[in-house]
Design a protein around this nucleic acid. Structure first.
Lengths: 116, 116
DNA sequence: CTCACGTTTCGATAATCATCGAAATATGAG
DNA sequence: CTCATATTTCGATGATTATCGAAACGTGAG
């Protein structure tokens, strides 16, 4: 990860609505969520939400996928992990307890199944 | 960690100079670094640097300590860990490979010693 | 085709933020 | 005390950002 990318990602997250939005997507996982559903969940006007979604998308933190008439958004875990790694790089000059071990798999494990 | 704190921290990091500054402090560890030394290292005018240091400090990401005529700044690892934890909270709805495991100890291990 | 639905773009406005020189403050030395 | 050093505050300016209604766009259904 490079500086400009990290700044973009951090700036994208440094906003009340976008942070809530990103954390929501982090929670729901790969399944993602439609723009309208997000707007309803967060209580933000559509046009405002669209602005924030575009911001997060262009920062590389969320991905977009069309399903029918809806656009499904989901968090990009790889980008999140890269950002955290970048923040903690060379932490404590390489001392013992330090270093980014955080990770969220893109494939959240196959022990869960949904039926609707 | 609460939303407003996280937004403050992310906003503080979402700037070219402050990100470089914070990462520099993360690298040097507990020892910290004087304001003037940082300004020289990063090539930023003193007044600008002071602005950014205050920003990071008020966001809770760095700590300030006076040593003689100098003010020594150091990264607050606890705050950094808390921020990362907040970002990854409930990642993937609690699936396996996920969750914030990252950590930088505040005491980087006692195998180093200074003599001045 | 026409219609309805979901989402984005446009546009104007208000608010926040970054920059840096000059002046002020705080600490220590002699 | 005076002087030198280290850092912060002040102040004005330019740049970026958030907001949201209205209108446009893209998609699917009948």
């Amino acid at each position: 990860m490079q500086s400009k990318q990290a700044i973009g990602a951090l700036g994208a997250l440094a906003n009340e609505h976008r942070l809530a939005l990103f954390r929501l997507l982090v929670r729901v996982g790969e399944e993602g969520m439609a723009a309208g559903a997000i707007a309803a969940e967060l209580g933000i006007p559509n046009s405002s939400l669209s602005f924030h979604l575009a911001h997060l998308n262009q920062a590389g933190l969320v991905r977009q996928e069309r399903r029918g008439r809806s656009l499904i958004y989901s968090a990009d875990y790889a980008a999140m992990n890269a950002l955290v790694g970048y923040l903690m790089e060379n932490c404590c000059a390489g001392a013992d307890g330090c270093g980014p071990e955080a990770a969220c798999d893109t494939q959240p494990s196959s022990q869960e199944r949904k039926q609707a």
